[in-house]
Nucleic acid binder design. Structure first.
Length: 494
RNA sequence: GGCGGCAUAGCCAAGUGGCAAGGCAGCGGUCUGCAAAACCGUUAUUCACCGGUUCGAAUCCGGUUGCCGCCUCCA
């Protein structure tokens, strides 16, 4: 079935047709590495992680490029984010970049986000950015000021605003900046001159300076994906001005379309409010996963959950929709996720002692039907909420089968496991690869718990329920939950 | 003020013309020594509000209200 995607550029749902048959080239705006990543980053990058995973599942050869911004991204005070942080910590700017780039990848790894194929850094592509800027000046799309700044001339590009729906008249009616060397308020910097004390600067035809924020994406996307590529992704809050500027400068430079499909993720809010440090409702990924402690004043904001549960919460909403983070909503998603892994784990448990053969072969119909529904959902603009509901429907069927008296052969049990493995783990990334080691239970712990389970079984056989319950209750207190099944007792780590 | 988007049960959420998916919470039941888990049943005559188009609208059109994002840095 054909994949449909909602293209923000055309504002329509379209059939996805890559430039080169069988290949997908995708660029996603990455983080500026001046602080730990937060759960808004998690929403964006988990969304594109699933998109990349699904494209590969469909058989496409995907090249996924996601940049690291480490220079030129200024605060509204005009300070460079990286330099400001370096000054505060009294370290080299590149130490800040290195520390937070590592932190970012740690977080993405913890969330099960597969690494992009290329993670280029802006500071490593300054010559490319200078070259593009020169061509834009030569083509009459940019101009240098006496100070050594270079601005893109939006008046030279009538299509400026086509992604975000802004019109030039609206932009020009905005306030004027006193003393600005820009010809037009909407003009944006391609290059900025640096004062001698500025720590990150490079030689250029316009003197010492550093690249503007937007031009890096043009340089790195086209370098690794070509002048025109398939998918450009990012967060909706960067649609204007960042994405708009990217399109203008890229297309003015090459004379060709930049990206064919624009996929933008909806923003994340917390309890209905924008997440920001000033509001005190900022949650980093490390805090959400319990890797770093949450300060007292934000402790009632968040419940620490497993990464797969956080992914489930994010994927229970469509990538393009806004998502409001609340404890209640997160807990609801986490509970639903537990149901899924309960069934997936039970299937693996049963497979260990299943009779050979194809008993219960009739279940093949369910496997086929639910996989088709899952794929149909994902083909429809990566509709993960529906894909998740398919997993739930499938899980009801699985639970009914596994809890029935019916003989189930190893073939069907392995197919059930493969279903969870390919769709739940491989595409959505919410089913852990080794359920018996959920929460990191090492083999010795496994042995100890099994010993206690045996002792409890003996107590139960002697109708010594007081002792049996004591074993179960005290294990529950330390987070080990026992469940009695007709075919034996299993345990889960809470 | 301008641009973009959203409004579906207690909570989350899918659904763009033909009787309102799924999850969480709740309630009733089955199973269990008791639990837990699981399964079965149940929970929106109704989709912010008011008009219109249509045999038929949550879905299309017009208007109203509320909320969010962006317009200045943010994924």
């Amino acid at each position: 079935m054909a994949l449909q995607v909602t293209n923000r550029l055309t504002r329509q749902k379209e059939e996805f047709v890559p430039l080169v048959d069988g290949q997908v080239r995708m660029y996603v705006c990455g983080p500026t590495v001046y602080d730990h990543a937060h759960i808004g980053h998690a929403k964006t990058y988990i969304s594109f992680d699933v998109i990349a995973r699904y494209l590969r599942y469909k058989g496409y050869q995907v090249r996924y490029v996601q940049n690291i911004t480490d220079v030129g991204h200024l605060l509204d005070t005009g300070e460079d984010r990286i330099l400001k942080k370096a000054g505060a910590l009294s370290v080299e700017p590149m130490e800040v970049v290195e520390a937070y780039a590592r932190s970012y990848f740690e977080d993405m790894d913890a969330l099960g986000v597969q690494r992009p194929d290329i993670s280029p850094r802006a500071s490593g592509h300054v010559p490319e950015q200078i070259e593009i800027t020169q061509v834009l000046i030569a083509g009459g799309h940019a101009y240098a000021t006496p100070d050594g700044d270079v601005y893109f001339d939006v008046n030279s590009w009538p299509e400026y605003g086509k992604l975000s729906g802004r019109r030039m008249e609206d932009l020009q009616s905005e306030r004027e900046i006193a003393g600005s060397e820009k010809r037009n308020q909407a003009d944006f910097a391609l290059w900025r001159h640096a004062e001698p004390e500025h720590l990150m600067q490079w030689n250029s035809p316009w003197g010492k300076g550093f690249p503007g924020w937007h031009i890096e994406c043009t340089a790195m996307a086209t370098k690794y994906l070509g002048e025109t590529f398939d998918i450009h992704g990012g967060g909706l809050e960067n649609q204007f001005p960042h994405n708009e500027c990217e399109i203008a400068q890229s297309e003015a430079w090459t004379g060709k379309p930049f990206a064919n499909y624009w996929l933008l993720t909806g923003s994340l809010t917390i309890n209905g409010e924008k997440m920001s440090k000033s509001l005190g409702n900022f949650i980093t990924i490390k805090e959400a996963l319990g890797i770093l402690p949450l300060p007292e004043e934000r402790r009632d904001l968040v419940d620490v959950v497993r990464p797969e549960a956080l992914r489930t919460f994010i994927l229970a909403n469509h990538y393009s929709s806004p998502l409001d983070y609340s404890r209640e909503a997160l807990q609801g998603a986490a509970r639903g996720w537990e149901r899924l892994i309960g069934a997936a784990g039970l299937a693996r448990f049963k497979a260990q002692s299943a009779p050979q053969g194809d008993a219960a072969a009739g279940f093949q119909t369910v496997l086929d039907e639910q996989r088709a529904r899952f794929e149909a959902a994902m083909d429809d603009d990566f509709n993960t909420p529906v894909a998740l509901s398919v997993l739930h429907d499938f899980t009801r069927e699985v639970n009914s089968l596994l809890n029935s008296d019916e003989q189930i052969g190893s073939i069907i049990l392995e197919k059930i496991s493969a279903f969870y493995d390919e769709l739940g783990r491989g595409i959505l990334g919410i089913i852990p690869s080794d359920l018996t080691e959920m929460g990191g239970a090492p083999e010795r712990l496994d042995g100890v718990v099994n010993l206690l389970i045996t002792m409890r079984a003996e107590a139960r056989a002697e109708k010594n329920f007081a002792q049996a319950d004591q074993i179960r209750d005290r294990l529950a207190e330390i987070g080990i939950v026992l469940e009695d099944r007709p075919d034996g007792t299993v345990y889960k780590l809470a």
